[in-house]
Computed example of a mutant assay.
Amino acid sequence: MRLSLIGAVAVLIAGVASTANAQVKVLTYDGDWGDALAAAISESPDLPVIVERYDGSLDAASSTASLVDAETDAANLMCDDGPAQPVDPALAQAFPRSLTPDVMHQCGVGYLVTSLVLATRSDGPDSWVAFFDAERFPGARALPRGARGTLEIALMADGVALADVYALLETPEGITRALDKLDALFTQTQIVFWDTPDDAVALLRADAVAAAALPSVHAAHIVQQDQQELDTSSAFQISFTGQIYRVQRLVVFPAATSDQETVRRVLTSVLSAKGQALLAKALLAGPVNPEAWDIMPASLAPLLPTALSHDITVTGLADNADFWADHGDDIEARFATWLDAHEQGTSPALP
């Protein structure tokens, strides 16, 4: 019999007997993100928890922390090369299948989802295939200045099945196919490669581009702010089909064994429907507990990656951090050469 979400968390930390009332340290980021996580933890009263801030790097992660807030790449490094504590992988089977995939990690628990999505005006392209059709949907396009994300989008637009994207990108032929797809878009319209999400937001708001690949949090803010300013439906829309998603994790460190009961309560609070709803509304990121949708405004569903209507397990592509750790340097170098040739106004020489 499968355990509930909270039931699975309850058995996450096992082994050494807990020491009651010891203070547990949780590391998270500065700013709104860390504030929201601290608020979710505080929903459970009388927790002996210290919430401290760090810059997200492995070097800054304190060995005295029990739980460390980390995005996928940093979480993997903490697990593979750092002090993170392995979690029994069999626990992943205890989570209901309706949950977002990859909630359980070998060294921690996922608690929010963000993604790279298609953002456009309401009359713009609504899929990556349409994003590459500038004849039907005129106007410039905005993409991240880098291979990661951009090449996956190109392959999805070229008809590659989600399950085959990274296997294909592992080959020189797959990279060539993605760059050829981008070349075809270049022949139709201008491609603007952005350095920061704020750059992409500015381009979209100024109508300098007709469509942009944009982090979901930034895309959601555009729509939400537009709705508030216009007091009506937004002029912008988000397509989550083919979203490239990442799971934000609370990584378990060895200090968690000093008070397993408090650590369990922290995770329970963050993963509860109430905690998840608080986080989702504050950060416009996707909750991993589907019960959160029962107490969240229906207006948030079109904005967040894990809304049930988006069916992320079927239509989303999990960003493969291990793939990019193994192959990223070579692929990014090849992409940079190709991009430099385009920005210099010459045709790239592809092997």
Rank of each mutant, 00 (worst) to 15 (best):
A282V: 05
A161H: 07
F253S: 00
L284P: 06
D259Y: 02
G7I: 08
L112S: 04
V192R: 07
A211S: 07
P197N: 11
F131N: 01
S42W: 01
D231F: 11
T262F: 02
G286R: 00
W324S: 08
F236V: 01
A90S: 13
S272M: 03
L27V: 09
S347N: 07
Q260Y: 09
K25W: 05
D69I: 02
S42C: 00
V51H: 03
Q276E: 09
A140R: 00
T176K: 08
F253L: 13
L304P: 09
D226E: 10
D81K: 11
M156V: 14
T171E: 13
L118C: 03
A8Y: 05
A282D: 10
L267K: 08
L179T: 04
P305W: 05
L267A: 04
H327F: 14
D59G: 15
D158K: 03
S309W: 08
L162T: 13
S258L: 15
E52I: 00
A280K: 00
A61P: 01
A92K: 09
V201P: 00
L303P: 09
D198K: 06
Q344H: 11
V314G: 11
A206S: 15
L300N: 02
S44Q: 06
A8Q: 06
T337N: 12
D199Q: 07
T262A: 09
Q260V: 14
A301D: 05
A119N: 05
A318E: 02
A301K: 12
V251A: 07
P305C: 06
Q106D: 13
A255H: 00
L230P: 00
T114I: 12
A142V: 10
G146F: 04
S98N: 12
S347Y: 11
S233V: 15
L151E: 02
S347E: 15
A134R: 04
V26S: 01
T187I: 06
K25A: 03
E71Y: 15
I312T: 04
G124Y: 00
E170P: 03
W33A: 09
M296I: 06
D231K: 13
N21W: 02
L5V: 14
E43W: 06
P144R: 11
L284R: 07
A147W: 04
A307Q: 00
H342D: 09
P144F: 05
E332L: 11
F323E: 05
N289A: 11
H105L: 05
F236H: 02
M1H: 09
R205N: 05
A202S: 06
Y111L: 04
P89I: 14
V49C: 00
V51E: 08
S62K: 07
D158T: 05
P86A: 10
A161L: 09
S299N: 12
Q260F: 06
T187M: 06
A90I: 12
A142P: 03
L214M: 05
Q237S: 13
L179G: 02
F335Q: 04
A273Y: 12
L185I: 10
A213S: 14
E343A: 06
T187D: 15
D326M: 14
A235R: 13
E71P: 14
Q106P: 14
K274W: 04
N289G: 03
A298L: 09
D126G: 12
F236C: 01
G174T: 00
H218Y: 13
L350R: 01
M78G: 15
A17I: 10
S299P: 01
R264S: 02
L250F: 15
A255S: 08
V9P: 02
W33T: 06
